[in-house]
Simulated assay, not measured.
Amino acid sequence: MADPPSRGKPRAMPQANARPRRTWTVLFVATLAACSRGSAPSEVTSPAGGSSAVNEAGAATASAPPARSPRLDDPRWQRAMGEDPAGLAALADALGATGLVEALGDGGVIQRTALLALPLADDADLALGPLGGRALVTTGEERAAVLEALLGVAGRPADAREMLDPEGAGEAAAAVLSIANDASLPREHRALAVSAARALAEKKLLDPAKIPAELDPP
């Protein structure tokens, strides 16, 4: 189980020296794109004993995006905007997790496209920390979309390689536990957080005993 993230200034998102061969299937996209994103806004606190300091691109609130993102004119983004699995996979291949996380600040369709593509990146686990931090500071539909992306990354099949960013994974684990245990948040958000927490627990990143059971099916 990863230790809770330490307090301090936001750290830079680590870079992978080499991106491993893809093992994840693009069939995930169809399921993720179909998920409901509607929910009522609500605030969430940082996990007790943990830190919400994460990569600035992931933890930044949804401040006013640029009037027009230059990515809107990029053919790679244009192809992926239609939620086409092949287009999303190509975007993930081209940019990797780092490039997709950087695009989250653009908001709108670019943000939605980046969140759909993130679980398809070969180095997707680099995004766990930024996604966890962003889930703590967003609300409503944006938080739901962030949690869906986090679940997609956390639920990728385990492989033999080491986690690219263990500290970021620990931050994500603390974030989803905080959301899952916050009874003031929308039930659908908490359910997504519980699912993500269970996926991270399977990877020994958190104690499954800390995951609330009240949202489990009867």
Results as ranks from 00 to 15, higher is better:
Thr138Ala: 14
Gly108His: 04
Val109Asp: 13
Ala53Phe: 09
Lys210Gly: 03
Ser195Arg: 10
Val101Met: 07
Glu202Pro: 05
Arg76Ser: 13
Leu128Lys: 01
Gly50Pro: 03
His189Ala: 07
Ala191Asn: 02
Ala48Leu: 13
Ala117Asp: 01
Leu104Gln: 02
Thr113Lys: 02
Gly49Met: 06
Ser36Cys: 06
Ala34Arg: 10
Asp216Glu: 14
Lys9Cys: 11
Thr138His: 09
Leu205Asp: 00
Leu100Thr: 01
Asn181Arg: 14
Leu115Asp: 02
Ala201Cys: 08
Val194Thr: 06
Ala12Asp: 15
Thr138Glu: 11
Leu118Trp: 03
Val29Pro: 01
Val153Gly: 02
Leu32Glu: 15
Glu83Cys: 13
Ser51Trp: 01
Ser52Met: 09
Ser6Trp: 14
Arg187Ile: 10
Trp24Gly: 14
Val109Met: 08
Gln111Gly: 06
Asp106Ser: 04
Gly50Met: 04
Leu215Gly: 08
Ala33Val: 07
Ala209Pro: 04
Ala196Pro: 08
Arg79Thr: 15
Glu188Cys: 12
Glu171Pro: 04
Ala158Asp: 15
Arg68Gln: 13
Val176Lys: 03
Arg161Phe: 11
Ala30Trp: 15
Leu205Glu: 04
Asp159Trp: 11
Ala103Tyr: 07
Leu116Gln: 03
Ala144Asn: 12
Val54Thr: 15
Asp182Thr: 02
Thr98Phe: 06
Ala191Tyr: 05
Val26Ala: 15
Asp122Phe: 05
Leu88Ser: 03
Lys9Ile: 12
Leu91Ala: 12
Leu72Ala: 11
Pro41Leu: 02
Leu120Lys: 05
Ala154Leu: 05
Glu171Ala: 15
Ala174Ile: 00
Leu116Val: 00
Ser52Lys: 07
Ala196Gln: 03
Asp74Leu: 07
Thr138Met: 03
Pro119His: 04
Pro119Gly: 09
Ala213Gly: 09
Pro70Val: 06
Pro208His: 00
Ala59His: 09
Pro47Asn: 12
Gly105Gln: 12
Val109Arg: 14
Leu151Gln: 10
Thr25Glu: 13
Val153Gln: 01
Pro4Arg: 03
Thr139Trp: 06
Pro47Ile: 05
Val194Ile: 10
Thr98Arg: 15
Ala33Gly: 10
Met1Glu: 08
Gly168Arg: 00
Arg161Ile: 13
Ala213Ser: 13
Met13Ile: 04
Leu215Trp: 11
Asp93Tyr: 12
Pro66Met: 07
Ala149Phe: 04
Gly96Lys: 01
Leu200Arg: 02
Arg37Asn: 11
Val153Thr: 00
Gly82Ala: 14
Leu88Asn: 04
Leu164Gly: 08
Ala127Cys: 07
Ala121Ser: 09
Ser63Gly: 14
Met1Gln: 07
Glu188Tyr: 08
Ala103His: 07
Ala145Tyr: 11
Arg7Val: 06
Arg71Thr: 06
Ser36Phe: 05
Gly49Val: 00
Ala174Tyr: 05
Ala135Arg: 02
Val153Tyr: 00
Ala117Leu: 05
Ala191Gln: 05
Ala149Ile: 01
Pro212Lys: 03
Ala18Val: 15
Pro70Arg: 12
Leu128His: 00
Pro47Tyr: 10
Ala213Tyr: 09
Pro166Asn: 00
Gly105Phe: 00
Arg156Trp: 06
Glu171Arg: 13
Ala145Trp: 12
Ala175Tyr: 06
Pro65Ser: 11
Ser42Ile: 01
Asn55Val: 05
Leu151Arg: 15
Pro218Ile: 04
Pro66Gly: 08
Arg134Phe: 05
His189Thr: 03
Asp93Glu: 14
Asp93Arg: 12
Phe28Ile: 13
Arg37Glu: 15
Ala160Ile: 11
Gly8Tyr: 06
